[in-house]
């Protein structure tokens, strides 16, 4: 089983495999539980499990969760219980994209803003970051989301030093802005 004590440290260090391990280990018990608890079909159970893992990840990277005082399974169950209703409501409303919508709502709520106001921004940023590609995405994500220092990023991404990463970050941000600008223009034209 994934060592539960170092899960948070590993996620914050940018270790992507740790989430995959959690996914594989916790998938069956969670889906079994949520199906029993809420009488949801298999597909919905899978989406709720994915949502729980993503929210768990978010709680770690946002600094909300710094230490696991219960097992990872218990923590995921708790998220599942809290988010099941929200997800169900989003799913019923939109008939599709319930997970995306719930995540949008989650981030907006945490940030105390109206979802409708930030929806376009968030979607544009999401698309922009996807188009940006590596190494830019890793640098921006590492710096702004994982809150890694330039030194940590230089070490993790195998760059010469912190200054190198700092300069790359600058270029990447410019690039991202351009992409987002183009995406925004597309939306405006429509």
């Amino acid at each position: 089983m994934t060592g539960e004590n170092d899960i948070i440290t590993r996620i914050l260090a940018g270790d992507e495999a740790v989430l995959e391990n959690i996914y594989l280990e916790q998938r069956e018990p969670f889906i079994h539980w949520i199906k029993q608890q809420y009488q949801v079909p298999e597909e919905e159970g899978i989406e709720l499990f994915q949502l729980a893992v993503v929210i768990f990840y978010d709680n770690v990277i946002s600094g909300k969760l710094t230490e696991l005082t219960s097992s990872i399974a218990t923590y995921l169950f708790r998220i599942g219980r809290n988010k099941a209703f929200e997800y169900h409501r989003a799913n019923q409303k939109k008939h599709q994209g319930g997970l995306e919508d719930t995540l949008l709502y989650h981030v907006a709520e945490e940030n105390e803003v109206n979802k409708a106001e930030v929806e376009d921004n968030y979607r544009i940023m999401d698309e922009g970051m996807q188009q940006l590609g590596e190494p830019c995405r890793g640098i921006i994500h590492g710096f702004y989301v994982l809150r890694q220092t330039m030194d940590e990023l230089a070490e993790r991404l195998d760059y010469k030093n912190a200054d190198t990463v700092k300069n790359l970050k600058y270029k990447c941000l410019k690039r991202l802005q351009k992409i987002c600008e183009a995406l925004k223009a597309q939306i405006t034209v429509r």
Partner: peptide, 12 residues
């Protein structure tokens, strides 16, 4: 926050 949302969508 938008980057955070992107990050969550990447994981999703």
């Amino acid at each position: 926050q938008a980057l955070r949302y992107h990050s969550l969508m990447q994981v999703t």
